[in-house]
């Protein structure tokens, strides 16, 4: 039973960040490859503040400020660079952030991370934690589903399909993309606030490049831009990831086998959707 609750918790905690990234990369077709960089900043800002003040309220306030600032930085990069340049440089920015956190160990804890993170009041038991994160995840899914079908969703899609035509129709790219990045930032904050208190630790390995590939895989497998599709793929892939633990293999083989499985899934997902992943611009 506890294992099932654990899987539900992991899925519910993962969803806000993945769906935020799906809004930017999947729906907006913006090659923002730095969502894990935003997560890292949100997590460290929140939990360093929590350690200093002991107040979750202050920690969340500071964490959300930093998450929004980091999102604004990546949005600014996206306005200045063309898509592939943004893809590479957002990864470069992510690497630079990791490097700073790793080397500024007197402040961030370096490779050891931030240990002994207390949980929020009333979230000590697994059932309460599961109910709380599941409720938040469901609210987030509904919010993004409504957003996807609103004028904002249509404007974001129009910009993704043909930016010039969309601009000619009066759609403000900077405003729409900035909102998308901010929503992604809030999603990153929600995931990180709960995930790290769940495991009682902020650990730098949780923000590496493989985590980003895992995000891309879930979004691509679930059909980019689709809230329900990506939710379903998150459920399936997180369950698969957790289930792989039970394969009776030594740990030094299990890690590469997991990489292999996910690499093949991502390649197969792109193969299946090769005509629809980046659809051709509509023409008359």
């Amino acid at each position: 039973m506890n294992f099932i609750l654990h899987i539900i918790c992991v899925i519910a905690m993962t969803l806000p960040n993945i769906l935020g990234f799906n809004l930017i990369f999947g729906k907006g077709k913006i090659f923002h490859f730095g969502p894990i960089g935003v997560s890292l900043i949100a997590a460290y800002a929140s939990f360093l503040t929590l350690n200093a003040t002991g107040s979750y309220l202050v920690a969340i306030a500071i964490g959300s400020t930093f998450a929004l600032l980091a999102s604004a930085l990546f949005a600014w990069l996206s306005f200045r660079l063309d898509p592939d340049g943004l893809g590479i440089l957002s990864i470069a920015a992510h690497l630079a952030i990791i490097n700073v956190v790793l080397n500024w160990s007197s402040f961030t804890g370096g490779a050891m991370g931030i240990p002994k993170i207390p949980r929020m009041p009333y979230l000590d038991s697994l059932p309460t934690f599961t109910i709380t994160v599941s409720t938040i995840a469901i609210c987030w899914i509904i919010f993004l589903f409504v957003l996807e079908h609103s004028a904002f969703g249509r404007q974001l899609q129009a910009l993704a399909e043909h930016e010039w035509y969309a601009k000619a129709l009066g759609i403000n790219r900077i405003r729409i993309h900035m909102i998308a990045f901010f929503i992604g930032g809030i999603g990153a904050l929600l995931t990180n606030i709960f995930y790290h208190q769940y495991i009682h630790l902020v650990y730098l390995s949780d923000f590496g490049y493989p985590v980003f590939i895992y995000f891309v895989m879930i979004v691509v497998a679930g059909r980019p831009g689709s809230v329900l599709g990506v939710t379903l793929s998150t459920i399936l892939i997180v369950t698969l990831k957790e289930a792989v633990r039970f394969i009776p293999l030594p740990s030094h083989i299990l890690g590469p086998v997991r990489l292999l499985i996910f690499g093949v899934i991502l390649l197969a997902a792109v193969w299946v959707q090769r005509d629809s992943l980046f659809p051709k611009k509509r023409t008359i």
């Binding site: 592939d84 590469p256 086998v257 990489l259 292999l260 690499g263 792109v270 980046f278």
Partner: peptide, 20 residues
């Protein structure tokens, strides 16, 4: 089909090669 597709497929391939 689209010049951005290899950006994603080579990410997948990098995972497979990493595992190898």
């Amino acid at each position: 089909r689209d010049r951005f597709l290899p950006l994603v497929t080579t990410i997948a391939w990098s995972m497979i090669l990493d595992a190898f």
